[in-house]
């Protein structure tokens, strides 16, 4: 799922300067799980915008804002969207860009999109995959260094790793420590001897 975080309300208000009739769209999948765009957050946003002097014309909560069928399906959820002269999207950047394709008014993000991660036993895991377009995670026992090492190193740790922690942030494990432990457990330390070729960035279909 997409890991997102809320922008500060001040930043949102600043971006909405000059916009009055606002429609709010959340997302009932990832953003709801992250509490950055589920029903409670959307309702709270509407109330705060009203309090700040904005006219909130309505809100909607598509199941997946990144995979909306059409503009009509949004109107079906709430016809008041037609009265909006700006739309505030509480989803990830992908959801926001899909909304921007469907509507003819300005679209504003309420969230920052941080990474592709997950939730497991209630814990949020950031940056589990960097969407490189050529998955080689099996080489690393299912732990991706492209996503989890800030340098994306594929052949072992940098010299900055200390006591199993990462040079960039000492609260974070060095991913190579985790990979080593995992492969040791799997009896596959041999995988670490393989020289891994550089990523072919052509396969990264993002651009």
């Amino acid at each position: 799922m997409i890991i997102s975080s809320s922008k500060s309300f001040d930043e949102i208000l600043e971006s909405l300067k000059g916009e009055n009739n606002i429609f709010v769209i959340g997302c009932d999948v990832c953003a709801a799980k992250m509490h950055t765009g589920g029903e409670p957050e959307v309702k709270d946003m509407c109330a705060r915008l009203e309090k700040a002097g904005k006219n909130v014309v309505g809100w909607a909560l598509p199941i997946g804002t990144c995979s909306i069928h059409s503009y009509d399906s949004l109107v079906e959820k709430n016809t008041n969207i037609k009265k909006a002269d700006a739309i505030l999207v509480m989803a990830c950047g992908s959801g926001t860009s899909i909304i921007a394709k469907l509507v003819d008014v300005s679209v504003y993000p309420a969230n920052n999109t941080d990474s592709l991660g997950g939730i497991y036993q209630g814990n949020v895991f950031h940056a589990q995959c960097a969407m490189c377009g050529n998955c080689t995670i099996a080489d690393f026992g299912g732990i991706c260094p492209t996503a989890q090492c800030p340098k994306g190193l594929l052949n072992g740790p940098c010299g900055g790793s200390m006591g199993g922690k990462c040079e960039v942030n000492s609260d974070m494990d060095c991913v190579w420590e985790l990979i080593y432990q995992r492969l040791e457990k799997l009896g596959r330390l041999d995988l670490l001897e393989k020289v891994i070729e550089p990523k072919d960035n052509v396969e990264d279909n993002s651009v």
Partner: peptide, 20 residues
């Protein structure tokens, strides 16, 4: 890493690692 230096907002490249 770039974040350790005096231009922490720079894009870290690391297109290749030292073995590559």
């Amino acid at each position: 890493h770039t974040t350790k230096g005096d231009h922490p907002g720079a894009k870290p490249v690391y297109d290749l690692d030292s073995v590559q």
